[in-house]
Design a protein around this nucleic acid. Sequence first.
DNA 1: CCGCGGGCCTGAGAGC
DNA 2: TGCTCTCAGGCCCGCG
Length: 293
Amino acid sequence: MPELPEVETVRLGLAPVMEGARFLKVEARRPDLRWPLPRDFVKRLEGKSVTGLGRRAKYLLADLSSGEVLLMHLGMSGSFRVATDGKDRVQGEYHHPRSEDRAHDHIVFHMSSGARVTFNDPRRFGFMKLVPRGSLDDEKMLSALGPEPLGNAFDAAMLARACRGRKTSLKAALSDQRVVAGLGNIYVCEALHRARLSPRRRASTLAQRSGAPSEKAERLVQAIKDVLHDAIRAGGSSLRDHRRTDGELGDFQHNFRVYDHEGAACVTPDCRGVVRRIVQTGRSTFFCPVCQV
DNA sequence: CCGCGGGCCTGAGAGC
DNA sequence: TGCTCTCAGGCCCGCG
């Protein structure tokens, strides 16, 4: 469930203890994640340092002094815990394990900064992968990604172009990482509500007949950027016991306007609508059928 | 090429 | 209280 804001929150939490630090020791306790770790995973990390920690969509990318990149994904339930001075701090996760639950601590980094960084992932949808920097472009998972929603290149014209001719719903289009990279179910629902656009609308209707972006596309792009910025500022969302940097609870979930609010009064000013839940392509969609058209 | 749906995986919560 | 069932959804892949 970590989406772009949660992954960015994790990146901000890990950067201070990983950037510029060396892997003194790496423990691969459970190598069968979403995809199995390479046999030499530990060897390729130990002794190398992290020259930078970046993010692309929901992926974390650690640049290594060896010329490789450590690609990390939290999947649905992944988290990182940082321990300094023996105190554990959670760097973002979905299902937060109770403090005594270490059964799902799959990978541990002992960094030269003195920090111990532990990757925990009960459902093992997350993964790590080592890729030579030069062949990063060959990674299908990365090369197929659409624009970063917070980047300058992502604008109404680009979104309209990506949705052009698409018969699928706007909800499905925004969930497609090739259209825009980093949104998941929650932020798609939230952005559509802020833009007052129905998730059931055909994606192709974001473009005018001429192919030019509609005013709806402008509204939607702004709504996407706004909701992501707001969520990052709040330290991400905490569903169930998800925690954020510093072990504090991220609190953006209190700002959800429709997600998980089935039956609640719509918060759009002067709207008398009630939030509904429907299922689209097997996923829950929350929206207001009155103001979202 | 496009869209849809299954599979992966575990824990939380509902219902009996 | 304890069992069973459903749901959560990011990503890949195969099918029509």
